[in-house]
Amino acid sequence: MATLKELSQKKEVLTGGHRLCAGCGHGIATRMVLNAVEDPLVVSVATGCLEVATTIYPYTAWRCSFIHNAFENAAATISGVEVAYRALKRKGKIEKDMKFVAFGGDGGTYDIGFQSLSGAMERGHNIVYVCLDNGAYMNTGIQRSSATPFGADTTTSPAGKVIPGKQQFRKDLTAVMADHNIPYVAQASPHNWKDLHEKARKAFEVDGPAFLNILSPCPRGWRYNTPDISQVLKLAVESRYWPLFEVENGKWKLNHRPKKYVPVEEWLKLQGRFRHLFKEENRHLIDKLQKEVDRRWDILLERCGEKKEE
C-alpha cells in the first residue's frame, strides 16, 4: 500500500476551504476514503453536515462529479448514476472506468435512509456506501439517532432530572449490513489511517456493493477538546465501543485487538455529552453500558473466530 508521504502528495478530491467545523471527523474521514481511489469518481451525499458545508452555491469543494439529492436517498441516487454508467458504457458513450460512492451521516444511513441503503445493497450495484457515524443528527442541532450511544445527552434525549440521556443502546448497523451478504463490509476509525485506507481500497476494488461504517467525532455534539479528536477516536476503539473489523465475502475478521482492557468510562470521560453519567446517582448507567459493550465484544470475537478473553 501507499506510504503516508505518498498519500499526502495526492491531489485531494475534497479541497480545503470547505466550511466543516474545526475538529470535525467528516472532512478527515472523507479525504481518507477518497484518497484510496484512482479512477474518476461520482460522489452522492445525503443531506447533512458534509453536504451543506462543502457545496454552498456558487462554490463547491468537490473536484469530482457530485450530486446531492435529498436526506434519505443517497444510496438510491448513486445506484441510479451507476446504472446510467452501465447503460452508457455498454453503448460506447463512456470510455473511462469510474467509481461510485455515497456518503451519509448516521441519520441518513441508520435511520431515514436505511430502506434506500438496504435496497441498493440488495440489488448488487457496484457502489461503495460510506456512513460517517457521529452518533446523532448533528446538522439539525444534535438530536438522537439510532446510532447515539446509550446514556448520551442530545437535544431530543436530554439529560434531564427524570430521564438521564438516551435510553437505548445503538443499532449495530455494520452487522446488519454484513447480513446483506454483500462482498465487503467494514467498520473503521480515522485515527488508524492505515486500516481505514486499506478498507476503503478494498471497498472500491470489490465487484459489487461495499459498506464502510466510519466513526466520525463531532466537537459540537460530543463536546471534546477539538485537538484531541484522534485520542477520542483511539479510545472508542481501545475501549471496544467501536471495534475495527471487516467482513469480506462473509468472512468476519477482527482487525485490531486492544492489548489491555480499557473500560468504556475512559472514552466517556473525554466527552461532555456523558458528563451527567459521572454523577453518583447515574454511575449504574456506565456499568450498564459497559456490560453491553462487553456482551457485543464477545459476540464479535465469536463471529471472527477469535478466542474470548480470560
Partner: peptide
C-alpha cells in the same frame, strides 16, 4: 427498486448521469 421514493431517486441519479 424497493419503493417509489427510490424509483424517483434512482431516476434522478440516472438522468443526472446523462441517461
Amino acid at each position: 427498486v424497493e419503493s417509489e421514493h427510490s424509483a424517483m431517486s434512482a431516476t434522478v441519479g440516472a438522468a443526472a448521469g446523462g441517461a
